[in-house]
Simulated scan of single mutants.
Amino acid sequence: MIDATGYTYCHEHLHIDLSPQKHAIDCRLDQYELLCDEMREVQKRGVRNIVEVTNSFMGRNPQFIEDLIDDTGINVLLSTGFYIEGFFPDEIYSMSASQIAQGMIREIEDGLEGSRLKASVIGEIGSSEDHFSPTEQKVFQAAAIAHLETGRPISTHQSMSTMGKQQIELLKKSGVEMTSVTIGHCDLRDNFDHILWMLDQGCYVQFDTIGKNSYYPDSKRAASIALLCQRGYEKQIMLSMDITRRSHLKANGGLGFSYLIDEFVPLLKQHGVNDLQISTLLQSNPTRLFG
């Protein structure tokens, strides 16, 4: 469970391997000592929790995370579920939503195979860019079943900030309360009205690709968050970086995990976000959802 005494990154990867699909070794994030260094550094900055949303068939490695926890003291919440088209195991296509859900429930209640750890988040479950395939929808239905059985929160993936409305509508139809849902990757394009609509449904939204300026500039992320805080939505917003590549790590020339605290938080302050609001985004909100 979450350590309420510090900050939480709501959407990260500490061990992920998308290299088979992306044909690039950079997409295999598994450099243990460098990740230990990164976790020690973020803890110096008040970060206590990492929500690790790597799930089955994305290169999840609970034994690796166990060692990371033991060697650095960082608190990590692990996830159960399936990602998006192109990253599904073959058997998922012939399984029912109920069968998929049983696997999720098992990983939450009994634990992850070969590990002492249990999943405590249902995620990162996603939709493709501008498309929500039947199998992706089936995974969402399974997530709803698992959530209703276990009470664990649901964390989603929007490809390029698309299809969030459809995700919410499906989860609502499946009986999920929006206060138990966080919609991922809301910060990859100009979509302020879309974000407002999602917030008004009662869910959380994630500005979770902070630092990925090639997709969308952090200056715009900060301006959007400031405007949302002015409008009273700060209790529904969370922050993260979605680090997935070796080249994202500080030692490899990337921004590193500490960038969010060292660079983005001061940028928020420049845009008028105050200390209490920053604490709400990074501490209170994740504690409420993931606690």
Score class of each variant (00 low, 15 high):
L188E: 15
G164H: 00
K172F: 01
G184T: 06
G151L: 06
V139D: 10
Q166L: 07
K172L: 13
R152N: 08
T162M: 03
Q141R: 14
M163V: 03
K172W: 05
P153S: 07
Q141D: 12
T156F: 01
D190N: 15
A146V: 04
R189C: 15
K138V: 03
T150H: 11
K138D: 10
Q141K: 10
K138Y: 09
I154D: 02
H157V: 09
G151M: 06
V176C: 04
T150M: 09
M160D: 14
K173M: 13
S174T: 04
K173H: 14
Q166V: 03
Q158A: 13
E177V: 03
S155C: 08
T156I: 06
T182E: 13
H147F: 00
P153L: 08
I154V: 07
K138T: 08
D187I: 01
E169C: 09
E169A: 12
V181F: 04
T162L: 05
H157M: 07
L170E: 06
Q141T: 14
H157R: 06
I183R: 01
G151Y: 05
S174I: 02
A144F: 02
M163F: 04
E149D: 13
T182Q: 15
D187N: 07
E149V: 11
E169T: 11
E149T: 14
M163Q: 10
E169L: 11
S180V: 01
D190A: 13
E177G: 11
H157Y: 06
S159Q: 14
M178T: 03
R189T: 07
A142N: 14
G184M: 07
I183T: 04
T150R: 14
V181H: 05
D190R: 10
C186Y: 10
C186M: 15
L170G: 10
S161D: 06
K138P: 08
E177D: 15
V181P: 03
K172Q: 15
E149S: 14
R152A: 10
C186L: 08
V181I: 08
H185S: 06
L170Y: 05
H157T: 05
M160Q: 13
A144P: 03
K165A: 11
Q141A: 15
A142S: 12
E177L: 11
C186E: 13
L188F: 12
P153I: 05
K172T: 07
F140M: 12
Q158I: 01
F140E: 11
A144L: 01
D187A: 02
Q167E: 08
I168E: 05
H147V: 00
S161H: 03
M178L: 11
R152S: 10
M160A: 13
H185K: 12
